[in-house]
Design a binder for these strands. Structure first.
Length: 438
DNA sequence: ATTCCAGTCCGGCACTGTTT
DNA sequence: AAACAGTGCCGGACTGGAAT
């Protein structure tokens, strides 16, 4: 049957050296700046591609390699690989699906924070695939009972990268072996925890990335069941607070930098309590110097909720000193600032200071000044229940009152500005602050 | 109060570009 | 050429909010 070939697609029919014949469908389009030339073995995909070249959206997708024809090819190859194995899916496949759905799109993000996070997530998961885990080959008896502990001497004992396992073959035994393998490699508990939780998330997200594979698991997630007891131990919390003398010394060193943004960024960090990524991503349109407030959008904060940061007089002055060249307040990328800050710390002989310590220092300083508050810090831990809509409305009004006053007078107001949801989090800082003047 | 989980930040290093 | 800067990667560690 002769399929009709639409205008725009040309059939290429050639004879190979081994006398076999190949037919491909070539789509070649040149319209102004838009030039593509691609051939397909499947006419339907060629038609799909041709269609995409005809709309602006389609051309954009083609430029990004995300046009329908390409995606169909990707998907077909992936499905083919999985159907061969009775619809089963390896952990590597699941990780790839996860990266495609949740991470890859952010690798080229304009938002610095997003890009850095996406790259780190991808690197971690790609590495996790390769960790070798022992198992008993199919067809051999898995030792149990008194012989269970002699597993590694059993017939059929072998090891392979955890990514090569089919997910429904993974049990808590394999995932626990993963933990053991990483421990043997001398990795820190917190690092291994990060691995396990990342993989756990990959399996959970199968529900959305590969529903068929997810249903096979029937709610079972081998990483949830892994024996994490060896990874336990009180979680360490950093306690460092920057003293006034240290701040002075550091500022002096920062002022010697060629880039005048260095001291400004640090000064603002310690006078607003803002996080590094929040400061570096800040735009002038978000800064209201007249009212003395910064509006942060939800996608800029760690808590993924928007918030208002009050500018105390010190911070307000600091902002006024910054020249406005374009909408960005600072022009560093995260990595650039980090490295330079590191070098300055070294020069100042203050190598045990971290950038995030500015946040802790800000909180402890403000707490020291809140002497009129009726609420003792100890009480803060208990008072964290009401958060219904009505309360939120009242909070909003009080936040505006605080900004009007240009000062932070209570712990609650402090929490608003640093975006701690409850006294629990702030108290982690508060307990570590220097003695409060009662 | 501790643990879970995911988001964010850290030091060290390599490489490249710019200023002194 | 030496010092200073900017960017990116990697394995590791800390943080924030909620569950236990």
């Amino acid at each position: 049957m002769a399929a009709t070939i639409p205008r725009g697609i040309r059939v290429i029919d050639w004879k190979n050296a081994d006398k076999s014949r190949s037919i491909r469908y070539r789509v070649r389009v040149e319209r102004g700046d838009f030039v593509v030339d691609r051939s397909f073995s499947d006419l339907e995909r060629a038609k799909l591609f041709l269609e995409d070249t005809k709309t602006p959206q389609g051309r954009l997708l083609i430029a990004q390699g995300r046009d329908r024809a390409s995606l169909v090819v990707d998907e077909v190859e992936r499905l083919a690989a999985e159907f061969i194995k009775e619809g089963r899916c390896t952990l590597s496949h699941a990780i790839d699906s996860y990266l495609r759905a949740y991470v890859n799109g952010k690798l080229e993000s304009e938002v610095d924070k997003e890009r850095v996070t996406a790259k780190a997530a991808k690197a971690r998961l790609e590495f996790c695939k390769t960790v070798r885990v022992p198992y008993i080959k199919p067809g051999h008896v898995v030792p149990s009972g008194p012989l269970a502990s002699l597993r590694q001497f059993a017939k059929g004992y072998d090891e392979k990268p955890i990514g090569d396992f089919y997910i429904d073959d993974l049990t808590e035994q394999e995932t626990t072996e993963y933990i053991n393998a990483r421990l043997r490699a001398g990795k820190a508990n917190s690092t291994i925890k990060r691995d396990i939780y990342a993989l756990q998330s990959v399996v959970n997200k199968l529900r959305y990335t590969d529903n068929k594979a997810w249903k096979r698991l029937n709610g079972y997630n081998p990483f949830v069941q892994a024996d994490k007891s060896k990874l336990k131990g009180g979680e360490r919390r950093r306690r460092r607070i920057i003293s006034d003398a240290e701040e002075e010394a550091l500022l002096a060193e920062l002022r010697k930098c060629r880039n005048p943004e260095m001291p400004m960024i640090f000064a603002l960090a310690i006078s607003t309590g803002m996080r590094r990524a929040e400061l570096l991503g800040l735009r002038w349109s978000q800064v209201d110097l007249d009212r003395g407030v910064i509006h942060l959008n939800a996608d800029q904060t760690k808590a993924s909720e928007d918030r208002m940061v009050i500018l105390l007089p010190e911070a307000r002055e600091a902002f006024k000193a910054i020249p406005q060249v374009d909408d960005r307040v600072f022009h560093y990328k995260i990595e650039g600032f980090k490295t330079n800050f590191q070098r300055v710390l070294k020069r100042a002989g203050l190598t045990d200071i971290h950038m995030h310590d500015t946040r802790r220092s800000f909180i402890s300083r403000v707490l020291k000044n809140i002497t009129a508050s009726p609420v003792a810090i100890a009480d803060m831990v208990g008072a964290r229940s009401v958060s219904n809509l009505e309360r939120r409305t009242i909070d909003r009004i009080r936040q505006h009152e605080m900004i009007e006053a240009g000062a932070i007078k209570t712990e609650q107001e402090l929490r608003w500005t640093v975006q701690h949801k409850d006294g629990q989090t702030t108290s982690r800082y508060a307990n570590l602050a220097p003695e409060r003047t009662e």
